[in-house]
Amino acid sequence: MSNTAPPFKRIIVDLHCSGCDRLIVRQAADLAQLLQLELFGRFFADPAPARLAALPFAREFRPGEHAWAPLEGHNVSQELSLAITAAERLFKQMTATLPRQFQIIHDPAQLEHPQDGRGESIAVIHQSGYPSAPFEQMLASAFQTAASVLILPSGVPPKSGPILAVVNGAEDPAAGIAAALARAAGEPLLRLDSQAGTAAQVPAARLIVTSRGTLPNATLALIATRKKTPVLVIGTEPA
């Protein structure tokens, strides 16, 4: 097991997906604090609604109002601007003591190819709110952005407990990262062989660290939802 510091520099939170979910931002900030990483908040200012608004029949369904409303270019821009402002305010409020960065992204390609080194980043995904895509698709997209992915539950995660490393073999980098996290958090470290397989067999923990492929994607999703435990999935090629 490696005793070196985790090879991460930042955690990336997509605020356009969780802009108003304080719990998600809080969990990401807690982990950043624990690992002494920068929290990188991104907001994708999608240009597609603005383009759609220029079409004659464009309209949108607003769940809050349970009604259809015409999609007008001016309104779309204004609402987008408000959403960005709200997300930025929340982000700054929740990360006041952390090194942080807030960025507005206009090009969808930037979501998949961040400016900084991919191998030093942890991308956050979660399933709160209206699902933008099936979990597996979300996970795959996240790994395009970063070397590692933090899957956050929608409920309240445990505030204490061991850091659990679910590893596949002695060389699994998840073991070293889990050990470093355990030291930083002052929590005990548990190591579990990957044969655990299902979510039910994974013991309760404050955070689970595993390498991509060690557990099936479905199991990762179940751990986050059923066990309400964050899971840090280390990419196969960490920097």
């Binding site: 999608d46 597609a48 609604p49 383009r51 759609l52 220029a54 079409l55 464009a58 309209r59 949108e60 369904f61 607003r62 769940p63 809050g64 409303a69 999609l71 779309v76 609402e79 987008l80 408000l82 959403a83 209206y130 933008s132």
Partner: peptide
Amino acid sequence: LRTPLGFAFAPAKNGQVIS
């Protein structure tokens, strides 16, 4: 599409909303 306040359908080409 996910708009700031809701959802909408848009004509697309290669997955992108056409101009």
